Simulated assay, not measured.
Amino acid sequence: MKILMVCLGNICRSPLAQGILESKVHTDRVYVDSAGTSGYHEGNLPDPRSIQTAKKYGIDITSQRSRKFLATDFDMFDVIYAMDESNFEDIIQLSRNKEEAKKVKLILDELSNEDKNVPDPYHGGDQGFENVYKMLEEACELIASKLN
Rank of each mutant, 00 (worst) to 15 (best):
K2R: 15
L4E: 03
C7G: 03
C7R: 00
C12D: 04
R13D: 01
P15I: 02
P15R: 04
P15H: 02
L16N: 04
A17W: 12
G19Y: 15
G19K: 15
I20H: 13
I20L: 13
E22D: 06
H26E: 14
H26W: 11
D28C: 04
D28N: 14
V30W: 15
A35W: 12
T37A: 07
G39T: 06
G39Y: 08
G39N: 12
Y40G: 02
Y40N: 03
H41V: 04
E42Q: 14
E42C: 14
G43V: 13
L45W: 15
D47P: 12
P48R: 08
P48L: 00
R49P: 10
S50E: 06
I51K: 08
Q52D: 09
Q52C: 03
T53D: 00
T53V: 08
K55E: 08
K56M: 14
I59N: 10
D60M: 13
I61H: 13
I61K: 13
R67T: 09
A71F: 14
D73T: 03
F74E: 04
M76W: 15
I80R: 07
Y81P: 00
M83D: 01
D84A: 03
E85Q: 13
S86M: 07
D90W: 06
I91M: 02
I91Y: 01
I92C: 07
L94G: 11
L94E: 12
L94C: 11
L94F: 10
S95M: 01
K102I: 07
K102G: 09
K102T: 09
V104W: 06
K105Q: 08
K105G: 01
I107H: 04
D109V: 01
D109W: 04
E110P: 02
S112I: 00
E114W: 09
D115H: 10
K116F: 02
K116D: 00
V118Q: 08
V118P: 08
V118L: 08
P119H: 05
P119A: 05
P119V: 02
P121Y: 00
H123F: 13
H123R: 14
G124N: 10
G124F: 04
D126F: 15
Q127A: 10
Q127R: 14
E130H: 10
N131S: 03
V132M: 03
K134S: 11
K134M: 10
M135R: 02
M135G: 02
L136P: 12
L136Y: 14
E137L: 03
A139C: 08
E141A: 14
E141Q: 14
I143E: 01
S145L: 07
N148T: 12
